[in-house]
Each structure stands twice: as structure tokens, then as C-alpha cells.
């Protein structure tokens, strides 16, 4: 034991294909819940801006879901769905709802009232207005929510290691490292998680810039 270095670079070099597989699994454990969560919370947010009474109960329910410990959720779902992806996806998706519902609602609320009034007065139908005016203008705050949800989910998804080899993701390295007293795996899992979270964050900042050219025009104006 004593002669083992803190990080066994040779081991990493020999297992690069494992690293790629785990990274891909982890990306899957993040992307699917965030995407599903976004679609669900977008629907809920549209409902809530049409019927403000929906907002309070939805916030309460998504908040409640958020407080369920992830280990407990996995343990509860495993007997039902086995070691399938669903066992991880379901709780991870529900955790995104609190953040994404709120950010989507804020996105819609950030659309200036005069813009909505002008759109209504000029004869946009509700659908057209949603698609052509409200959604584009809600993008910045929605993406802020997606960034936060992605980073959070990357962290939470390490717990999905209990799903084992086929879906476990980077958490698998950490669990194995702990079980076999092999710190290299622990460091590897942790560092790659952080790097993944960081990369996703940058990716979405880029997407936001690309999707909102008008905001860039304003920034150049004031610069």
C-alpha cells in the first residue's frame, strides 16, 4: 500500500475506454432527466402563467419532491424497475422540476407587459404569441435554470452508482474506489464530475448567446 502513489496514472492510461463509457453514462444520467424535467416544467409553467392559482401548489409539490433523499428514492424504485435506467431517471427528473419550474415561470414573467399587450393588440393568437414572443424572450432565464439543473444533476447522478456497471456513470468509479481502497478511482470520479458540470455550464452559456442575438446587440451597444 505504502508504495502506491496518490494517483495511479498508469492505471488511468490502461482504462481510458472505461473512462469514456462512464462519462457517456453520466452524461446520459444528466441529459435525460434535465431534458424530461424541462419539458414537464415548461408545460407546468405555461399552465401556471395562464392560471396563476396553479403556481403555489406546483411550487409546493416540486419542493416536496426535491426533499426526498436520493438514496431512498433509488432504494424504493429498484424493486419496481430493477437495475434499469428508469430507476435513476425518475428521481433525477423530479429533482430538476423545482429549479426548472421556477426558472421557466420567471422566464415568462420577464416578458415586458407592453410587449405582450402589443402582441395581443396586433392580433397574435395565443399559440403564436407563445411561440413567437413569449418563448424567445423567456430563453435567458430558462437557460439559467437549465444550467443550474444540469450542474446539480451531475452531482446527484453520482449516487446512481448503485445501478451497477451498465448505467452507473462516474459514481461507479467513486464507489469502487471506496470499496477497494483505491484513491485513484475516487479522484477520477470526482474530478470528471466537476469537469462535466463545468463543461455543460459553458455549453449552455454558448447556447444562450447563440439563441439571443438581440441581447448581444444590446451588449455591444452599451459597451
Amino acid at each position: 500500500m505504502e508504495d502506491k502513489p496518490l494517483v495511479d496514472w498508469a492505471w488511468i492510461g490502461d482504462h481510458l475506454d472505461d473512462v469514456v463509457v462512464r462519462l457517456f453514462q453520466h452524461l446520459q444520467l444528466t441529459a435525460i432527466p434535465v431534458a424530461l424535467g424541462f419539458v414537464i416544467s415548461l408545460g407546468l409553467a405555461i399552465w401556471a402563467i395562464r392560471r396563476p392559482i396553479v403556481y403555489g401548489p406546483t411550487t409546493a409539490i416540486t419542493g416536496l419532491l426535491y426533499t426526498i433523499p436520493s438514496i431512498a428514492a433509488f432504494a424504493f424504485l429498484r424493486p419496481i424497475f430493477g437495475l434499469s435506467l428508469l430507476t435513476a431517471i425518475i428521481p433525477l427528473t423530479t429533482y430538476t422540476l423545482l429549479i426548472l419550474f421556477r426558472s421557466n415561470v420567471s422566464g415568462f414573467q420577464s416578458v415586458p407587459a407592453d410587449v405582450l399587450e402589443a402582441a395581443e393588440g396586433m392580433g397574435y393568437t395565443r399559440r403564436e404569441r407563445l411561440r413567437r414572443v413569449e418563448l424567445p424572450l423567456a430563453i435567458p432565464l430558462m437557460i439559467t435554470g437549465i444550467r443550474l439543473a444540469s450542474v446539480t444533476t451531475v452531482g446527484l447522478a453520482t449516487v446512481a452508482a448503485i445501478l451497477g456497471d451498465s448505467f452507473g456513470g462516474l459514481g461507479q468509479f467513486i464507489t469502487e474506489g471506496l470499496q477497494t481502497f483505491f484513491p485513484t478511482k475516487i479522484y477520477l470520479g470526482a474530478v470528471l464530475s466537476v469537469a462535466l458540470a463545468f463543461s455543460l455550464d459553458i455549453l449552455f452559456v454558448r447556447i444562450e448567446l447563440w439563441a439571443t442575438p438581440w441581447a448581444r446587440a444590446r451588449a455591444e451597444q452599451t459597451a
Partner: peptide
């Protein structure tokens, strides 16, 4: 209602231009 509104020009004080267009 939609046809009616499209046949009436509407100008408001805050203008309400679409910032993203």
C-alpha cells in the same frame, strides 16, 4: 377577434416593440 385586431393599427406609449426581432 383575431381578424378584427389585425385590421386595426395599435400604438401604445411604451411602444412594445419585440426586443428579439
Amino acid at each position: 377577434i383575431t381578424e378584427l385586431r389585425r385590421s386595426i393599427g395599435y400604438v401604445i406609449q411604451q411602444v412594445g416593440l419585440f426586443p428579439h426581432q
